[in-house]
Amino acid sequence: MTYKLILNGKTLKGETTTEAVDAATAEKVFKQYANDNGVDGEWTYDDATKAFTVTE
């Protein structure tokens, strides 16, 4: 299944996707991606759209 990450960081904005077996796996991938790019903020998840959002 495809999951999307929407980044609303102070220095990094954009979107990326990942293929994962479930939302928990996608969340781990996205949190590592955000951490690697220096984005740390409030996380939300919308199951209807399979989209995670992180806002700094």
Results as ranks from 00 to 15, higher is better:
50 K>V: 03
5 L>H: 01
19 E>P: 05
24 A>Q: 12
32 Q>V: 09
56 E>H: 07
24 A>W: 10
39 V>C: 04
20 A>C: 07
4 K>W: 10
31 K>W: 07
21 V>R: 11
11 T>G: 08
43 W>R: 00
51 A>L: 14
14 G>S: 12
29 V>C: 09
33 Y>H: 04
41 G>V: 02
8 N>I: 14
45 Y>E: 00
16 T>A: 10
29 V>E: 07
53 T>E: 05
37 N>Q: 14
46 D>M: 04
48 A>D: 13
1 M>Q: 14
5 L>P: 03
12 L>D: 05
16 T>Q: 10
20 A>P: 01
22 D>F: 03
9 G>I: 08
21 V>Y: 12
41 G>I: 02
18 T>F: 11
33 Y>G: 00
53 T>I: 07
34 A>W: 03
12 L>W: 14
48 A>M: 12
36 D>M: 11
43 W>S: 00
23 A>Q: 11
31 K>S: 04
21 V>T: 13
38 G>V: 04
33 Y>C: 04
6 I>Y: 13
54 V>L: 12
55 T>F: 07
12 L>G: 07
50 K>S: 05
1 M>G: 12
42 E>V: 14
37 N>W: 14
32 Q>A: 12
37 N>F: 14
11 T>A: 10
10 K>L: 15
40 D>C: 14
50 K>G: 05
16 T>D: 03
53 T>K: 05
41 G>A: 02
38 G>P: 01
14 G>F: 14
50 K>F: 08
40 D>M: 13
8 N>K: 11
13 K>S: 09
5 L>E: 03
22 D>K: 03
40 D>G: 08
9 G>V: 10
43 W>Q: 01
9 G>T: 15
51 A>G: 04
1 M>C: 12
9 G>W: 06
16 T>C: 12
20 A>V: 04
35 N>Q: 15
41 G>D: 01
34 A>I: 06
44 T>Q: 09
50 K>Q: 11
36 D>F: 08
3 Y>I: 02
1 M>I: 14
25 T>A: 14
33 Y>T: 03
14 G>A: 12
6 I>C: 06
4 K>P: 02
31 K>P: 01
50 K>H: 13
14 G>W: 15
50 K>C: 06
2 T>L: 13
52 F>W: 10
28 K>H: 08
46 D>E: 06
18 T>W: 07
43 W>L: 03
27 E>W: 15
48 A>K: 12
29 V>Y: 15
26 A>Y: 00
5 L>A: 02
39 V>Y: 07
20 A>R: 02
23 A>E: 07
40 D>S: 14
41 G>C: 02
46 D>R: 03
21 V>N: 11
51 A>H: 06
19 E>A: 08
33 Y>R: 03
37 N>K: 14
51 A>C: 15
48 A>Y: 11
15 E>C: 13
48 A>N: 12
10 K>C: 13
11 T>V: 12
29 V>N: 06
20 A>E: 04
55 T>S: 09
44 T>D: 09
10 K>N: 12
52 F>C: 02
8 N>V: 13
56 E>C: 06
49 T>C: 06
4 K>N: 05
46 D>G: 02
31 K>E: 04
15 E>K: 05
1 M>E: 12
24 A>Y: 10
37 N>S: 09
13 K>E: 06
21 V>P: 15
18 T>V: 14
28 K>P: 03
9 G>E: 03
27 E>D: 04
45 Y>C: 02
53 T>W: 06
43 W>I: 03
16 T>G: 04
27 E>A: 09
14 G>E: 10
25 T>I: 07
21 V>H: 12
30 F>T: 00
1 M>F: 15
17 T>E: 09
44 T>E: 10
47 D>I: 09
51 A>N: 05
54 V>I: 11
3 Y>W: 07
3 Y>M: 02
13 K>V: 10
54 V>W: 04
33 Y>A: 03
42 E>H: 12
17 T>D: 05
9 G>P: 03
51 A>K: 09
8 N>R: 11
46 D>P: 00
14 G>I: 15
7 L>M: 12
29 V>L: 11
27 E>M: 14
5 L>F: 05
13 K>M: 08
10 K>M: 13
35 N>F: 15
17 T>I: 09
8 N>H: 10
47 D>V: 10
56 E>N: 05
19 E>G: 05
29 V>K: 08
44 T>Y: 10
37 N>A: 13
47 D>S: 12
47 D>F: 09
49 T>H: 11
36 D>P: 01
7 L>K: 00
33 Y>Q: 03
35 N>P: 01
21 V>S: 11
15 E>V: 13
17 T>N: 06
53 T>M: 10
31 K>C: 05
4 K>E: 04
43 W>V: 02
10 K>D: 08
34 A>N: 02
47 D>Q: 10
3 Y>L: 02
16 T>K: 11
28 K>R: 12
13 K>Q: 12
20 A>I: 03
35 N>G: 08
9 G>M: 13
31 K>V: 06
24 A>V: 10
21 V>A: 13
56 E>A: 07
12 L>C: 11
21 V>W: 12
5 L>N: 02
8 N>E: 07
39 V>G: 02
44 T>A: 09
8 N>Y: 11
11 T>P: 04
38 G>H: 09
17 T>G: 04
7 L>G: 02
28 K>G: 07
9 G>Q: 04
54 V>Y: 03
46 D>V: 04
29 V>H: 12
15 E>M: 10
36 D>C: 08
55 T>K: 06
22 D>E: 04
4 K>S: 06
14 G>P: 05
55 T>P: 01
38 G>A: 06
52 F>L: 01
54 V>S: 01
25 T>C: 05
17 T>P: 02
19 E>D: 11
24 A>F: 10
13 K>I: 09
20 A>S: 06
40 D>R: 13
15 E>H: 08
24 A>I: 11
27 E>T: 03
12 L>N: 08
32 Q>E: 10
11 T>C: 15
25 T>L: 06
39 V>P: 01
18 T>K: 04
22 D>Q: 03
36 D>K: 10
18 T>R: 05
28 K>L: 13
